[in-house]
Amino acid sequence: MSSDEITPKPPRRARARGAGAASTATTDGLDVEETWRQTCRALVAPLERALTLPALRAAEARLAEVAARQGLAIVEEPLFGLKGDPGEDPPHRWAYEAVLPIRGAARPEGDVTVARVEGGMYLAATAPRGLDDLANLYGHLLGSLLPGRKQRLVRPYILHRTQRTADGQERAPTEAVAVTVYVPAVLSMEPVPMPADDAET
């Protein structure tokens, strides 16, 4: 086994490379999909806190250049990650990074590093108004959806993917680009608090 190979825990069900849908539900008008992701390695590069589409695309292109230079296989479309828990951390502590899942003997290069992106169960939902709508979507997912489904955030690292147009073309930088957000979640093992009336009986 080469040094860059990973041995993730066996999946609960068969799935394709990258993200695979398990089920979809609609909550408060928001389509939420349960999906499984495989553990993978990725090239990552820091992003400015004031996240913009041009800066994100530039970082994605830079990671693709590093992957080509190092002879790496790109195993899925680029992502970007939020290091932190938006339900607990104030916005000034949020840190974003561009993420390019790869396979091969990757090595750091400049400010590009190599990281492990954990797999497992994720809840996926889309912010149709793009990057400016992410804070609202975080609030819904972490403040309403996860507690309502008796689930919890298992890692303070949230993945995202910007959507292309139907023909694969880029939108203008000033246009809103829908962003799918992937929140790592599992069923909570903590007991659910009982209503006061029930607790007294």
Score class of each variant (00 low, 15 high):
173 P>S: 02
159 L>D: 06
112 V>S: 03
85 D>S: 10
183 V>K: 06
52 T>V: 01
153 L>F: 01
165 T>N: 13
48 E>R: 15
83 K>H: 12
83 K>L: 09
106 A>T: 04
62 R>Y: 07
109 E>A: 11
142 L>K: 13
120 G>E: 05
52 T>Q: 03
80 F>K: 03
150 K>A: 10
85 D>C: 09
72 L>R: 00
70 Q>S: 10
97 E>L: 12
104 G>Q: 10
53 L>F: 12
93 R>A: 14
46 P>D: 03
184 P>L: 05
139 G>D: 10
46 P>F: 05
53 L>K: 12
115 A>R: 08
76 E>R: 08
143 G>A: 10
167 D>P: 02
181 V>P: 04
168 G>L: 05
49 R>S: 13
183 V>A: 03
60 E>W: 11
53 L>T: 13
66 V>I: 10
45 A>N: 00
157 Y>M: 08
78 P>F: 11
105 A>E: 07
141 L>E: 02
51 L>M: 04
183 V>Y: 00
108 P>T: 03
155 R>W: 10
148 G>E: 05
110 G>D: 02
109 E>C: 07
185 A>W: 08
75 V>H: 00
112 V>N: 01
175 E>G: 04
115 A>E: 13
133 D>S: 15
148 G>C: 06
72 L>P: 00
108 P>K: 01
151 Q>C: 12
180 T>L: 04
120 G>S: 06
178 A>N: 13
125 A>P: 08
62 R>K: 15
56 L>Q: 03
180 T>H: 03
115 A>N: 09
66 V>P: 00
123 L>E: 13
153 L>H: 00
158 I>V: 07
61 A>Q: 14
128 P>F: 01
150 K>I: 03
78 P>T: 13
152 R>Y: 15
101 P>D: 06
122 Y>D: 02
109 E>P: 02
84 G>K: 05
47 L>D: 02
67 A>R: 01
45 A>D: 04
121 M>F: 14
70 Q>D: 12
91 P>V: 07
151 Q>A: 12
151 Q>V: 06
175 E>D: 14
148 G>T: 06
74 I>K: 07
96 Y>F: 08
68 A>K: 14
144 S>W: 15
139 G>Q: 11
57 R>G: 02
120 G>Q: 05
110 G>W: 07
119 G>I: 01
72 L>M: 01
164 R>C: 15
96 Y>S: 01
102 I>K: 00
122 Y>G: 02
111 D>M: 04
71 G>V: 13
47 L>R: 00
58 A>I: 09
109 E>H: 07
178 A>C: 11
95 A>Q: 14
105 A>H: 02
179 V>P: 06
174 T>C: 14
69 R>W: 15
136 N>S: 15
119 G>N: 03
125 A>M: 09
141 L>M: 08
131 L>K: 02
135 A>E: 10
114 V>R: 07
62 R>E: 14
123 L>Q: 12
105 A>S: 08
133 D>L: 08
163 Q>M: 13
126 T>P: 03
79 L>N: 10
167 D>A: 12
126 T>A: 04
172 A>P: 12
79 L>A: 07
82 L>S: 04
83 K>F: 09
79 L>P: 03
175 E>T: 06
48 E>N: 15
159 L>A: 14
47 L>T: 02
150 K>D: 06
186 V>L: 15
48 E>C: 14
74 I>F: 04
187 L>T: 11
185 A>S: 14
124 A>E: 06
110 G>H: 05
104 G>T: 08
113 T>E: 04
